[in-house]
Design a protein around this nucleic acid. Sequence first.
DNA 1: TTGAAAGCGCTAACAC
DNA 2: GTGTTAGCGCTTTCAA
Lengths: 359, 359
Amino acid sequence: MPAPSKKPPSAAPPASASLPTRRGRASGGTTLLEVARLAGVSAMSVSRALNAPNQVSPSILAKVRAAVDATGYVANRIAGSLASRRSRLVAAVVPSIAGPVFQGMVQSLIAELAAHDHQLMLGQSGYGTQEEDALLEAIIGRRPDGIVLGGVVPSPAGRRRLAASGIPVVETWDMVADPIDMLVGFSHEAIAATVASFLIERGHRHLGFVGGNHERAARRARAFADAALNRPEGVPASTVVVETVVAPATVRSGRDALREMLQREPRTDAVFCSSDVLALGVVTEAGARGLRVPQDIAVIGFGDLDFAADVSPSLTTVRIDSTRIGQLAAQFIVRRSQGLDVDHARVDVGFSIVPRESA
Amino acid sequence: MPAPSKKPPSAAPPASASLPTRRGRASGGTTLLEVARLAGVSAMSVSRALNAPNQVSPSILAKVRAAVDATGYVANRIAGSLASRRSRLVAAVVPSIAGPVFQGMVQSLIAELAAHDHQLMLGQSGYGTQEEDALLEAIIGRRPDGIVLGGVVPSPAGRRRLAASGIPVVETWDMVADPIDMLVGFSHEAIAATVASFLIERGHRHLGFVGGNHERAARRARAFADAALNRPEGVPASTVVVETVVAPATVRSGRDALREMLQREPRTDAVFCSSDVLALGVVTEAGARGLRVPQDIAVIGFGDLDFAADVSPSLTTVRIDSTRIGQLAAQFIVRRSQGLDVDHARVDVGFSIVPRESA
DNA sequence: TTGAAAGCGCTAACAC
DNA sequence: GTGTTAGCGCTTTCAA
């Protein structure tokens, strides 16, 4: 084995087919250079043939394609990312993918990104600030082309880090007042107020709210209570009882919540749940107690999950276009990574109430 | 601006704090070299202080930490991955994250990987072979430290690609006969046979099966029918009717399936569903038709999803330890990427029947 | 259109 | 323990 210790890097190895056996650093698979040699063209031509085929003559294109097929070459995107400073990777952080709420968004994120040749890295926060900051650091270290935050409110330190990183950030699920960068969401306050009106207009006066133990749910609960207690039309004030459940939302926690709620306020005649899963639990518990839904107690869920229309009674619920949220977030990031300006980077996707049997 | 066009790379720039202003390639953020200069040590010492703190003297460690804090430096893992040939990225492919079946696995994958400083890249197949092969190519291009396949059966070409890539692969959810590499799963045939016996022993003779329109569900259906028709104990043969629903499994498709099943075989007195969501649909439809569950018709689901115990009637179901599947898959890959041998790389995690009210 | 040179930011290997 | 050197495999830049 010849060991030229200080050979300048410019001198190309002899055109043999042998693998490069430099200092002890074993090579992985086929490289661009090997494909180039096989095709009898330069490395740059191979790169162009792969990434910008229309900038290359048909003859080179054919030669490169043949060499790629012969070798089974798959370009190393790590090297490409380092050189081009574009990772084509997007990171998403959600509290937990267990809850069905973010599924639609993550799903459409993946699909939309894939359509633009980007991939998704998925992280779960929700194990405390410590872990969340570590996660953000791990994410920033990968230099993703964008970061999507789903229902996550980073710590002040985390926010600063994100902002300082210069990486495009899309916050979702909430129209926060002071976004880090871009924003695709809806107003939890508006939803709560609308649902409260919906129930009061139908004659309900003893309203309950069931939601998680996080800040967003608390805001929604407050808005719900405010709207119920201070109706502009002068409708008699209602009582409102709030039941907090620990995340994640399950059928069980919905059942438990209704039980406790009825202990605190037996007259409760309508319940707004921050998830259809909780709503299903409330409906189930009501049935087990001989309460009729909606006659004795009305129930409104959130999410319009796929089962909402098909359980019995079918669930009245708040529908969010989570697919659109994912698509917009992906598009914003892809556009940014192409150097384009994103104009409408604060989007409220709105919501609608889907009236069904349960309310 | 001085423009030394052919300066040899060995000559270090003057120790000024100015950003490197080479040829026109703008630098991103702080680099390792800048931290090193600020700390007054070599680049390697910074690298060691960050990645192997115990190989470094306390004094250097302190200087490096100070410099890192001062600059807000976050190491670029793309460069690190390229140099070390370890991306610390693991890819997972599932048919769809919409179905709740893979959630547990993905969740524990993320958590377990995070504990070992790895991240998860998530891809969705299930849009046809074309897209799936493109996805595999995109994944291989990122040189992940491992690939986890969840309920995905790649095309022959895809399998060859994966095998040729040399990347550790863990197939999950099924004890396939000829795995590409590692395997963590359970036997769909064994489950089907056990469920069939369970139902026949309880006196049911007209069994139905509801499952998706994919190969795995078909195998399970076949095994279910075989077990029902050829019982070793000589129990009189049963009739079996199979109802195929299109993925993804929803409450709606479960309801539809029962309706059609009863048209084809009105005597059906027990149904095995390949998902608890389908089972919930079957139970709901049965209720809507005045059939009592389990007296008139027994229902068994699959997955033991979080609602299974808490709906009414509660669902008898097949439980899989999906958390363990994710953990094992992650551990196998992490161990491999550390150069360790993985011995028990074919694990059958088994299953159990959880008897509740519905059967 | 095509190619040569230079380097993206880091770490493995080797010397001290 | 610490530093030096030489890349990892690709793309940007510039020149032909």
